[in-house]
Simulated scan of single mutants.
Amino acid sequence: MRPRPLSADLVWPKCTLGCPLLDKVLRGGLASNSITELVGEAAAAKTQTCLQLLLCAQKPASEGGLAGSALYIYTEGDPPLRRLQELANYQKPSSCPANNPFDHIYIERDITSGEELLACLERVRRLLSSPPGRPLRLIVIDSIAYIFRDVGDNASVGAYVERTGLLFQIASLLRRYADEYNVAVVVTNQVMDAVSAAESGGKAPAARHTGGLKLMSDGRQVIPALGLAWANCVHTRIFLARAQQMVVLPDDAVQQAHILRTMQVVFSPYLPQSLCHYLVTQAGVISPENLGR
């Protein structure tokens, strides 16, 4: 169930990540009309990146934004609204200097199952077709893996079949929205430890999940959760990880050390496999090379 192929020369709008050097790696930002997955362990800054995108989507095209509103579907309890407000104080889009950026963000919470997520997404069509304000240009699901976490290694074949069916329905609906309404879709996913070839009977499942790349997080090899069925549903997979290195910002008065993180393009129909570094600061996600610019 591979999504339709995308051209290497995309003409669809892209949403800036809020940092020129990170945008350069993604050739302008995250593409509309496609599904982008951010995958990584806890504290890899998946949610931080999503929050920044919610604000960046409101920016005009001249600033790399989508000039629209965003939908944030948060599945892991209470959404981090305090952090979103903190980022908004630093990154309020210039297109709405007198308005609250929250006016252009729709938030859905208390989604606890795949069935509830599918029902929520089915209701989104009305918002897409008849928006009360700015057109909806970004849909973020944070996270897709959390609501399927109960399907473990000892689950029955029927449970896996049911999960796969739900994932296909969700992915199909997201692709339809991306195609019909020119929407950028972003989902976050978790990781699990990679099984060695010896443990898997001589096979190499990690390579099938990661396009042949060896993904490392905190010194461990990992692979994205949800398996190959879900991997075939997304266009672009981006791996986020904490590097085992600390960085002190040159203009930081208290000389606080920040964890260096990596952003890696795992597979994409229009992006080469590549890697860059970034930090999470009070002002948001930013490349270390872009500090002070």
Rank of each mutant, 00 (worst) to 15 (best):
Y160C: 00
V161H: 08
E162V: 07
T164D: 12
G165R: 13
L166A: 11
L166E: 13
L167S: 05
F168C: 11
Q169G: 04
Q169S: 15
A171L: 05
A171M: 05
A171I: 08
L173H: 03
L173M: 02
L173C: 13
L174T: 09
R176H: 14
Y177K: 05
Y177H: 06
Y177A: 06
A178D: 02
A178T: 07
A178C: 05
D179S: 15
D179E: 14
E180I: 01
N182S: 13
N182R: 12
N182K: 14
N182D: 10
V183K: 09
A184T: 15
A184D: 10
V185Q: 08
V186G: 09
V187F: 10
V187E: 03
T188Q: 12
T188L: 10
Q190D: 05
M192Q: 15
M192T: 15
M192D: 03
A194K: 10
A194C: 07
V195G: 00
V195I: 15
S196Y: 13
S196H: 06
A197I: 00
A197Y: 01
A198S: 14
A198N: 08
E199K: 08
S200F: 00
G201K: 01
G201R: 01
G201Q: 07
G201C: 06
G202P: 02
G202K: 08
G202N: 04
K203A: 11
A204P: 00
A204L: 13
P205G: 03
P205R: 00
P205W: 06
P205T: 05
A206I: 12
A206F: 09
A206Y: 12
R208Q: 02
R208M: 07
R208F: 09
H209E: 04
H209R: 12
H209V: 08
T210M: 05
T210S: 13
G211M: 01
L213G: 06
L213E: 14
K214M: 03
K214Y: 01
K214I: 08
M216T: 06
M216Q: 11
S217R: 06
D218E: 15
D218W: 15
D218V: 05
G219P: 02
R220V: 04
Q221P: 02
